[in-house]
Computed example of a mutant assay.
Amino acid sequence: MNTTDAIWSALEEVLDPEVGVNIVDLGLVYEIEVDEKGHADIEMTLTIPECPLADEIVSNVKEAAAAISGVKDVNVSLVWEPKWSPARMNDRAREEIRARQRML
Rank of each mutant, 00 (worst) to 15 (best):
T4L: 02
T4R: 09
D5M: 08
S9G: 13
L11K: 01
V14T: 03
V14R: 03
P17W: 08
P17R: 01
E18S: 08
G20A: 01
V24D: 03
D25C: 01
L26C: 09
L26K: 10
G27Q: 01
L28D: 04
Y30T: 03
E31L: 07
I32M: 11
E33G: 04
V34S: 04
E36Y: 05
K37D: 15
G38Y: 07
A40C: 06
I42R: 05
E43A: 12
E43W: 13
M44K: 11
T45N: 03
T47G: 04
T47V: 09
P49G: 02
P49W: 10
C51K: 01
C51P: 04
A54D: 11
D55F: 10
D55V: 06
I57N: 00
V61L: 00
K62S: 10
K62Y: 05
A64N: 04
A65N: 10
A66I: 12
I68E: 11
S69T: 14
V74Y: 12
V74W: 03
N75D: 15
V76Y: 11
S77P: 08
E81F: 00
K83P: 10
S85M: 03
A87S: 15
R88Y: 13
N90P: 11
N90H: 04
D91K: 00
A93S: 10
A93F: 07
A93T: 02
E95M: 08
I97P: 00
I97C: 08
I97G: 06
R98P: 01
R98W: 12
R98H: 11
A99N: 13
M103T: 06
